[in-house]
Design a protein around this nucleic acid. Structure first.
Lengths: 249, 249
DNA sequence: GGTCGCTATTTTGCATTCATTTTTTGTCAT
DNA sequence: ATGACAAAAAATGAATGCAAAATAGCGACC
């Protein structure tokens, strides 16, 4: 059998800890719903190489189900932009061009920019304090050159801002686009330039400052620029090799 | 038979003039793809009442197909947020609460705000001229109190801005959210207050001005506020009865 | 040796069928 | 008449079957 899916031993994680509840009317109960969640995570985590064909038959065996619910899940994933369906030729992992990535980053930037704007209207002092906490934590990782920890704290900050926007629709859309990018991030192992790291820290401080003052328009601008800069770093990186862990300031 | 779908005589338009090509890997070819397009339009145009059940059987008869491709299309529509699927209870037209609408409007505002920002980077003088043209056209409708023409011109202006952003991902997302709102617009017959109309015209002039100067941040702000005001008018309107066609200035 | 053309196998798309759940209906007792 | 319970009917969720398309395999020919 000439499989295009690498056998990782773990045949698509079963329960998935209800990680990404995307509102989507309680799919979890039905079989196709669970398949959807599992397949989505599986694809997002980059377990299937870019552009690879995904034979239905094989997935059915791996998942232990028939083709009907699987095909339903595939249609949804295609609508989400994670895979693409070629007529009579089955599903392929959607290969994102550099242009696609640029577009995705810009949309993410727009959504975060919006989140910041809305957050200014609704965020509580406690939430700001929590974000400040995360910021200091992130700063610690920065000093210790702990890239992984830094990324995690960074991501939680951005998620906190989105959460503070009090808009489930926005949150869902954000999660959707984030998933598409994450797929690439996993496989490409995004790294940030040394210099960019310090810059990002400064930008984060400006974000916090604007957030404290509830300066909606300003925060919106700063967030957009911040994400735009991220985009630059990420896209550039696709061409060049990785760099070492950045030095402390 | 206690059908929840009103028999309009026209049983779900067949070809649909390829109106909304949502990138989504050429679905049109396959049967489920065409069903998807037809059903989406059918739902968006408000042919099925809010919250109504959508019996698979009946739709199959109307469309002359078996349940398999129909169910695939339903899953996608559910992922798009147009309908919701209750486990073992079939599909319902998703009923949007007032809160849902507010959220949707805000996301639309964010996307248009982003579109304006991006448009400033890429828009050509010719495109601006075209938008100015639409603006004057809209102004004509305004003077003639032609609400329908006004709305159409208005919509085309906003679509032009989105197009000028040169971002297909954004365009697709925008079309998706617009569809969800359009459903409501059709059934609720949104109307704008007299006073709001004049205001909107002024805002549109400010939009054009910022666009000409390629003032990205400023345009972003104006567009967001413009859509926010629209939201206010629309949401309010849900509670109150319609008003007559507004008077000329 | 490489390419074209034909056949066999695999794979996809959709219809059909089966099992389970829900909803309706019908009956009976209060 | 009304409510509760039970059985029938219908609808949904998933599996299987079948025709059409695509891919792979193979040999002939240039």
């Amino acid at each position: 059998m000439k499989s295009t899916i690498p056998d990782t031993g773990v045949p698509i994680a079963p329960p998935a800890t209800n990680g990404g509840d995307r509102q989507e009317s309680r799919h979890e109960a039905s079989l196709h719903g669970e398949i959807l969640l599992r397949l989505r995570d599986y694809v997002v985590e980059g377990n299937i190489p870019d552009g690879a064909r995904v034979p239905e038959r094989q997935l059915c065996e791996m998942l232990g189900i028939s083709r009907t619910p699987l095909r339903e899940a595939l249609k949804v994933l295609a609508a989400e932009g994670l895979i693409e369906l070629l007529p009579n030729r089955g599903a392929r992992i959607r290969q994102l061009s550099q242009r696609d990535l640029e577009e995705l980053f810009d949309v993410m930037a727009g959504l975060e920019s919006l989140a910041g704007r809305l957050a200014c209207e609704a965020i509580t002092d406690e939430e700001i304090t929590a974000i400040e906490q995360l910021h200091y934590e992130m700063y610690g990782h920065y000093l210790r050159r702990d890239m992984h920890g830094y990324f995690q704290a960074n991501q939680r900050i951005h998620e906190s801002i989105v959460a503070a926007a009090r808009n489930e629709t926005l949150k869902t859309a954000y999660a959707n686009f984030a998933g598409r990018i994450r797929r690439v991030r996993y496989s490409a192992n995004f790294a940030r330039k040394r210099q960019r790291w310090a810059e990002a820290m400064r930008e984060h401080e400006a974000i916090l400052d604007a957030l404290r003052r509830r300066a909606a328009s300003e925060l919106s601008d700063i967030l957009f620029q911040h994400l735009r800069n991220k985009r630059m770093a990420a896209i550039e990186h696709l061409a060049e090799p990785e760099e070492d862990a950045p030095a402390a300031p």
